[in-house]
């Protein structure tokens, strides 16, 4: 049994309490501002205690930006992004760490490269890719000369004419953000620490690679899946620029864009109370996700089977 060092435990508690207070201080101010009336929130300095208008503000916010629909959109998009990222990255990392194949290093660096470019540069081209998903295919068909070959051989004209646009669709909000170097990298790091004996044993038992993946790797990855799941859900939840640009239907937008709509315009009444209130309401689903995924942070998974 590990000894208990009481001074150290006390110090740990103290550090955590202080950190919790500090990290939540900005949230507290959001709560204060979100519970004041428009006249009260203009006071400088802001009061230290919350006011009594929280429910009233929440109701105003709810109807003003149609928060219900936006929350639903955000949940779908954030879940889609998180689940998608985790799924494709688990597979990628599995491939990169457990298989010896050509271009393995190249593929890893290609995935990694996607972290290294500021979004501003690719806004318009990405938008073009999203409104015309088949463009790369068309390009490929033209460049490769497949179309003329087919035409010459069969007389059929091969054309990629479908007009496939993801504008104003959940797919359009999810797919462009689904690739993940972060998750691939983290799973790679994690898989590399998994004892070789497990894989050896699986192979001796005649298990296929995918069976090994499902029955051994996936369960062992649970803490990392939880950590990444939280991070990616919040990443998806807090997306602003893509949803703003990639939707032109007000009903298809997300809650963060809705909040931005409540940020007082330079010239108008600084009704920050509504903005802050909306920001707090928008935190509720992420908090539920954080709490739900807590159960996956179980200790000592790596010892299973020892």
């Amino acid at each position: 049994m590990i000894e208990r060092a009481s001074w150290l435990d006390a110090a740990c508690h103290a550090i955590l309490v202080v950190a919790a207070l500090l990290t939540c201080l900005p949230l507290y101010y959001a709560l204060v501002a979100g519970s004041l009336t428009t006249a009260e929130v203009q006071q400088v300095p802001l009061p230290f205690l919350p006011g009594g208008a929280f429910v009233e503000n929440a109701r105003a916010v709810w109807t003003r930006i149609g928060l219900g629909r936006l929350l639903l959109n955000s949940v779908i998009v954030a879940l889609g992004i998180a689940v998608g990222k985790l799924a494709i990255s688990l597979l990628s990392a599995f491939a990169i760490t457990y298989f010896r194949f050509r271009f393995r290093g190249t593929v890893f660096w290609l995935i990694f490269l996607s972290l290294m470019l500021p979004v501003e540069v690719r806004i318009v081209p990405t938008f073009e890719a999203m409104t015309d998903v088949l463009m790369p295919l068309r390009l490929l068909v033209q460049l490769s000369g497949v179309d003329s070959l087919v035409q010459a051989m069969t007389g059929w004209r091969l054309e990629v004419s479908a007009n496939w646009s993801l504008l104003n669709s959940y797919s359009g909000l999810i797919f462009p953000l689904m690739a993940s170097a972060t998750a691939t990298f983290l799973f790679r790091q994690f898989f590399l620490t998994i004892p070789d004996e497990l894989c050896d044993a699986a192979r001796i038992d005649g298990a296929s690679p995918m069976r090994f993946f499902w029955t051994i790797l996936l369960p062992m990855s649970r803490p990392n899946l939880a950590a990444l799941g939280i991070i990616f859900f919040l990443f998806g939840w807090n997306q602003y620029l893509w949803p703003l640009l990639f939707t032109t239907e007000p009903t298809m937008t997300t809650v963060v864009v809705g909040i931005k709509q409540l940020v007082p315009h330079g010239d108008s009444i600084p009704a920050w109370n509504l903005t802050m209130n909306a920001a707090l309401l928008a935190m509720l689903p992420p908090i539920v996700v954080v709490l739900l995924l807590q159960r996956w942070f179980v200790k000592g998974l790596i010892e299973s089977g020892k």
């Binding site: 955590l16 919790a20 919040l234 807090n238 992420p286 954080v290």
Partner: peptide
Amino acid sequence: AVLLLPYAIAPAI
């Protein structure tokens, strides 16, 4: 849970 809360608020806010 508490230490993760700040990550949940919209960055602009």
